[in-house]
């Protein structure tokens, strides 16, 4: 019985996919512009290869992680600007550290920084990572990321939007020689 019901929904139910016209809307021009500039900077700094990023969770609420995941989806698609996430700090040019560093993850953050080849750009993402946020002075956290490892750029926001993150990355790359 259930099977027939399923077939009914499949063949006679309402259409759930969007119409073609919805997809071909105007692109977010701001992201496009930032992305192009990042691409130029990456080209200048790394000579043709992409900028490789390792994300480290220092004890965040996962809000920042969701935004970082969004960077890779079809809408933002940062791969086209020469940014890519890697699985090991051994391959990373840049570290994304999120969350106030908890005492349990302090060693992990430190070790990740040590394991990354120099020069390594450290980006603190989110209010927790920049200042400790609402968890500051808690017994369970060390505090902002710069108490554990040197931080080159901070991207505030709880959480920052993907566009803000991209802007922050661009800012970090611009200062570099």
């Amino acid at each position: 019985m259930a099977f027939i019901k399923l077939l009914k929904i499949l063949f006679f139910g309402p259409k759930v996919t969007e119409s073609e016209s919805g997809l071909s809307g105007p692109k977010d021009q701001e992201i496009q512009n930032i992305g192009e500039e990042i691409k130029k900077e990456v080209e200048r700094l790394y000579g043709g290869r992409s900028l490789r990023i390792r994300a480290v969770d220092g004890g965040s609420t996962n809000a920042e992680e969701i935004e970082l995941t969004a960077l890779l989806n079809a809408y933002y698609d940062i791969d086209r600007f020469g940014l890519s996430f890697v699985a090991s700090p051994r391959h990373a040019d840049m570290l994304f550290v999120t969350g106030p560093v908890t005492r349990n993850l302090e060693a992990a953050v430190k070790k990740t920084y040590q394991a990354a080849p120099e020069p390594c750009i450290v980006v603190a993402i989110g209010d927790g990572a920049c200042t400790g946020g609402i968890w500051n002075d808690s017994y369970a956290v060390v505090g902002s990321v710069d108490k554990v490892i040197p931080v080159h750029i901070r991207i505030p926001g709880d959480p920052p939007t993907p566009t803000e993150i991209l802007k922050g990355v661009l800012g970090a790359l611009r200062g570099k020689k």
Binding site: S88, L105, K111
Partner: peptide
């Protein structure tokens, strides 16, 4: 060259 521990996913 720089010497440090073996990478172990941040674990000691």
């Amino acid at each position: 060259e720089r010497e440090y521990d073996t990478w172990n996913c941040g674990q000691p």
